[in-house]
């Protein structure tokens, strides 16, 4: 009895505020835009009873989905969000791996401090950290100033408001999410495994590819999912750092909702984005559960 009380409080909360809203999003994605409050039709009318449900259901259709799939704007936005997320995930992995590897090999007494230094930026505002790059990347910004003073370039580079700036922003913002799982899996590797590999005739760089890297794959996977999934739906970074030609679906959804006030279409965009992300999200949860099982 008490058990059910304990379960029901967080369960009901999540059902009401997380699961039910998705059904509402789905329902509205089948509705039509209207100049009303709320700005969609039909709305459900309780006073009509059962026949009301019938007329209500008959007015729903998949029109918005056809619209999304016919307009190349949306398809491009999905596709470019996925490619930008994939490329930046790969870049983040390239940068994070040597850092995590160095941290795992650092003297034991430094490691807690190093981990804290990786986490610390995560505690400071995401928005502020993205904002910091505007001042650095813009035409008269600090990076161009620095490079021109060194004489490396004579003309300022255009980085801000390009896709390059979006890559930089994603890599920078999500770097801790990649370093931490990598470090966790690298740190667990028993050093005598490497000694054993070398003892059996494998030079260090080979031992790395034969022993260290395969053992760190769970961390690599966890890190990649943790970067890829939220980066696909990212809004702040493409909005602040990207240009008008940088299409990302999160930004499209935002504009559709706040600027065009088209709630049904933005709901349909959200439903499709969710369907696109279901595969990586489920794979990620599988990976996590496998790790937890193996850890016990």
């Amino acid at each position: 009895m008490r058990r059910w009380l304990l379960i029901s409080v967080p369960y009901l909360w999540l059902l009401v505020f997380f699961l039910v809203p998705f059904f509402i999003v789905f329902k509205i994605s089948l509705s039509d835009i209207a100049t009303a409050i709320p700005p969609y039709t039909p709305t459900f009318d309780w006073s009509q009873g059962l026949s009301g449900i019938g007329t209500f259901l008959s007015q729903l259709d998949f029109e918005n989905y056809f619209f999304i799939f016919e307009d190349p704007l949306y398809l491009n936005a999905y596709w470019s969000a996925l490619t930008i997320a994939a490329i930046s995930t790969f870049l983040t992995l390239l940068i994070a791996y040597p850092i995590a590897y160095g941290m795992a090999r650092a003297p034991k007494e430094w490691q807690p401090t190093l981990v804290m230094l990786v986490i610390l930026p995560f505690w400071t505002s995401f928005l502020i950290r993205v904002y910091a790059w505007i001042g650095i990347l813009k035409k008269e910004g600090l990076l161009n100033l620095f490079l021109m003073n060194l004489g490396i370039i004579s003309e300022p580079l255009t980085i801000l408001n390009t896709t390059t700036a979006v890559y930089i922003g994603i890599v920078y913002s999500y770097l801790p999410f990649m370093i931490l799982p990598l470090y966790a899996s690298l740190e667990k590797i028993n050093p005598s495994l490497l000694e054993a590999a070398e003892d059996l005739g494998s030079p260090p760089w080979k031992a790395f590819w034969q022993v260290t890297f395969p053992l760190s794959i769970p961390g690599v996977l966890a890190g990649c999912f943790l970067v890829f999934i939220p980066a696909t739906g990212e809004f702040v970074i493409p909005d602040l750092l990207g240009g008008s030609d940088t299409l990302m679906i999160g930004k499209t959804l935002w504009n559709e909702f706040f600027n065009n006030r088209d709630w049904p279409v933005s709901s349909a965009v959200a439903v499709v984005l969710l369907l696109v992300l279901v595969v990586p999200i489920v794979l990620f949860q599988r990976n996590q559960e496998k790790q937890r099982e193996a850890g016990r």
Binding site: L226, P230, F235, G250, L253, S266
Partner: peptide, 25 residues
């Protein structure tokens, strides 16, 4: 339940935000 605990961790914020707004409406 465990899915509901896990999903918001990786759910894009735009989706969470939109769905909550539509609930409140």
């Amino acid at each position: 339940f465990s899915g509901l605990i896990f999903a918001p961790l990786v759910m894009p914020e735009v989706i969470t935000g939109l769905s909550l707004l539509l609930l409140f409406v």
